[in-house]
């Protein structure tokens, strides 16, 4: 596929430590199409935030990209220098983080931050930039934007601050917005407002979104496609409706079963036994094999490749490999 906005190919992220190199992300590949919302879910430590950080070149040292490539409209961005990367961030890729306070400088007013960002990416006058900034704040739902634009970040409530961050992420009209747990720090009632806002405003501007979250509900309501990460590997990727209503990877099946819902009654939740392995103790073969009730010999020996399931879906599980299905049946006899 050459028309992808962002292509991540066989991405591998490593952390050298004194006890050896830890592989936090291993062989992860996916595309994001222009205007598409891709959800990335996984438990803490699954590597979802690291994937986002690797794309925008903000891996915390000693973490490093050890393999694979990242292409933005066909141009490699994983090997760019700090300065070139800085220009891509903000201009072509916008960012929204979990804690709005880390994205805003507490010493400057919202107006100063917005105008500065707008003017570094577009050659316009200060007055013009201010007009745009007010319009943008108005668009993200800040009441009395004209007056409040001169306030400092701490004058805003948590939800309002996240709106400001979204405005800041969008003010250079990026092609891609990476939102890392944008609603986790917010209350339920505010959360839905922010999700709706991200969805609407990106659709309006044709920006693609990479939405990183641990909350399947948020993904269900927002994303077009979803990628499920486990232990730094891609477990499953596909259209949201398919993955949620008919998950195929045993991990996704377990994940969906373990979420209590507002509509169905369960005496007990379907829990996946155990916990995700630590990075220094990822088992051989499929990383999910100790917790998987379907695991068979091949799962302990060979690492499953993402197998194509239909047009738009890939599942990294030997259960769906024809060769292994035969073997498994033999083993069951």
């Amino acid at each position: 596929m050459t028309d992808a906005l962002l292509s991540v190919r066989n991405l591998r992220v490593e952390f050298p430590t004194r006890r050896g190199v830890l592989t936090a992300i291993d062989d992860v590949s996916f595309d994001i199409m222009p205007g598409e919302v891709l959800g990335v879910v996984g438990e803490s430590g699954a590597g979802k935030s690291l994937t986002g950080a690797a794309i925008i070149g903000l891996l915390e040292p000693p973490g490093r990209i050890a393999g694979g490539e990242i292409l933005l409209k066909g141009q490699r961005i994983d090997n760019l220098g700090a300065e070139a990367m800085r220009r891509i961030r903000g201009k072509r890729i916008g960012m929204v983080f979990q804690d709005p306070l880390t994205s805003l400088n507490p010493l400057y007013t919202v107006a100063q931050q917005l105008i500065e960002t707008i003017r570094t990416h577009a050659d316009i006058s200060e007055a013009e930039a201010r007009k745009r900034a007010v319009a943008l704040l108005d668009r993200v739902g800040i009441p009395a934007a004209k007056r409040r634009i001169d306030d400092y970040p701490h004058h805003f409530s948590g939800g309002m601050r996240q709106r400001v961050v979204i405005a800041l992420a969008l003010c250079a009209e990026p092609e891609l917005v990476i939102a890392d747990e944008p609603t986790t720090a917010l209350d339920v009632s505010v959360q839905s407002q922010i999700i709706d806002l991200i969805k609407e405003i990106c659709a309006e501007r044709g920006a693609a979104v990479m939405l990183i979250t641990h909350d399947m509900g948020v993904i269900a309501e927002t994303a077009d496609r979803v990628a499920v990460l486990y232990s730094g590997r891609m477990a499953e990727i596909g259209p949201v409706t398919q993955v949620i209503t008919a998950p195929e990877h045993p991990y996704t099946v377990g994940l969906m079963g373990s979420i209590p819902t507002l509509t169905q009654d369960h005496a007990r939740l379907v829990a996946i036994p155990g916990a995700m392995p630590r990075l220094n103790a990822i088992p051989q073969g499929c990383p999910f094999n100790p917790r998987c009730e379907h695991a068979f010999d091949r799962c302990f020996a060979e690492r499953p490749e993402p197998l194509r399931r239909g047009d738009r879906r890939r599942v990294a599980c030997w259960l769906y490999d024809e060769v292994s299905t035969v073997e498994q049946e033999k083993a069951n006899v």
């Binding site: 959360q191 509900g217 949201v240 949620i244 507002l262």
Partner: peptide, 18 residues
């Protein structure tokens, strides 16, 4: 306001204010 996992497609009433 709770995100809907059931994909029922129900249109939520937007939540007002904070």
């Amino acid at each position: 306001a709770v995100p809907d996992l059931a994909l029922s497609g129900r249109r939520r009433k937007p939540v007002e204010g904070e």
